[in-house]
């Protein structure tokens, strides 16, 4: 994005070229596009903060002095702290197998990895209710052993892991496929062990893609609503994540509270976008990013 933008500017001449539009048309198109984005993105974004601060900073900060809010934050962090590393390890393993080896059914495997993206969040929760719920396939077995998964923390972790399943893998697979395997082969032939090759050659090459995947994975893990809503049971202070807590506050007409907690997730979203842009910029500005520097 970066170099391309400066290139465009350099090649822009004051006189209109036949492959560009008249300034009037240009301004109209920019205006229309920005108007659309303002209407659908900027206005809702600003409204979160406006509503959160509607009764001043005091009321805003007071919304967080609530043990229930605190426990919702804690549960969200726990769920993300389990789901993100799991999917990270899976993403690296899947990308290694898919990008570095040939085997039949590879394309099918890639499609299956993407599957959770095309499943409605509600169904992502439902499948775990069907498996582990009281009426579910493993329900009686779990009840006998007094293990609770649905309407408890494990269910929330499972649902979160499911919906964030593809994020890291889908970033790494195309990246590692494009990088090929010659660098790793050289390391192995020169006598490095498999692990050493991975840590010293592969990981430095994929670090930006990995970071990118982790950032997106984390944002989704902390913000997931539909799937978690189905398995949570909405027990206050116990099985409510931040998004579910927002819903409860909102339905109780505690708008300042709901938007105050929502502003927390909005800030997280903005930080995510900033980090994402930074990683993209970092990746584009370093021409050797795809090859890395193997020590």
């Amino acid at each position: 994005m970066g170099p391309a933008a400066t290139l465009n500017r350099a090649s822009m001449t004051p006189r209109r070229r036949p492959t560009s539009e008249p300034p009037r048309v240009r301004r109209l198109l920019i205006g229309l596009a920005l108007g659309f984005l303002a209407l659908f993105l900027v206005v809702p974004l600003a409204s979160v903060f406006a509503h959160a601060l509607a009764r001043g900073w005091g009321a805003y900060l007071k919304s967080f002095h609530d043990p229930v809010t605190f426990s919702a934050i804690k549960l969200t962090v726990i769920a993300a702290a389990i789901a993100v590393p799991l999917n990270c390890v899976f993403g690296v393993a899947a990308a290694w197998a898919i990008a570095k080896f040939r085997f039949p059914g590879k394309q099918l495997l890639i499609t299956l990895i993407d599957l959770p993206f095309s499943v409605s969040p509600v169904i992502s929760g439902l499948i775990f209710v069907l498996l582990f719920g009281a009426q579910g396939a493993l329900g009686p077995w779990l009840i006998e052993r007094e293990i609770q998964i649905i309407f408890a923390v494990p269910g929330i972790v499972l649902a979160t892991t499911f919906v964030t399943f593809p994020f890291v893998a889908r970033e790494l697979i195309p990246l590692m496929q494009a990088q090929g395997r010659s660098e790793e082969e050289a390391a192995i032939v020169l006598g490095a062990s498999g692990w050493k090759t991975f840590w010293r050659v592969t990981l430095p090459n994929i670090k930006w893609g990995l970071l990118y995947g982790v950032i997106l994975c984390n944002a989704r893990a902390m913000g997931e609503f539909g799937a978690v809503s189905v398995v949570s049971g909405h027990i206050r202070g116990e099985t409510n994540t931040i998004p579910l807590h927002i819903e409860i506050l909102y339905n109780e007409y505690n708008f300042v509270g709901a938007f105050a907690v929502a502003s927390l997730l909005t800030l997280l979203a903005l930080v995510t976008l900033a980090l994402k842009t930074w990683v993209e910029w970092k990746n584009a500005s370093a021409p050797g990013a795809n090859h890395g520097s193997s020590p």
Binding site: M1, A5, L34, L37, L41, V42, V43, P44, L45, S47, V48, H51, P121, L216, A219, M222, G223, E224, F225, G226, I242, P243, L244, I246, E247, Y250, F255, A258, F259, A262, L265, T266, A269, L270, T272, L273, A274, K276, T277
Partner: peptide, 26 residues
Amino acid sequence: KRLVDALVDLPFALPTAVAGIALTAV
């Protein structure tokens, strides 16, 4: 332009529940 470009991904990053209450309020 850079800011607008980054902002386009907001619906991916913003939790759906937050989007829901914000759009309803607006």
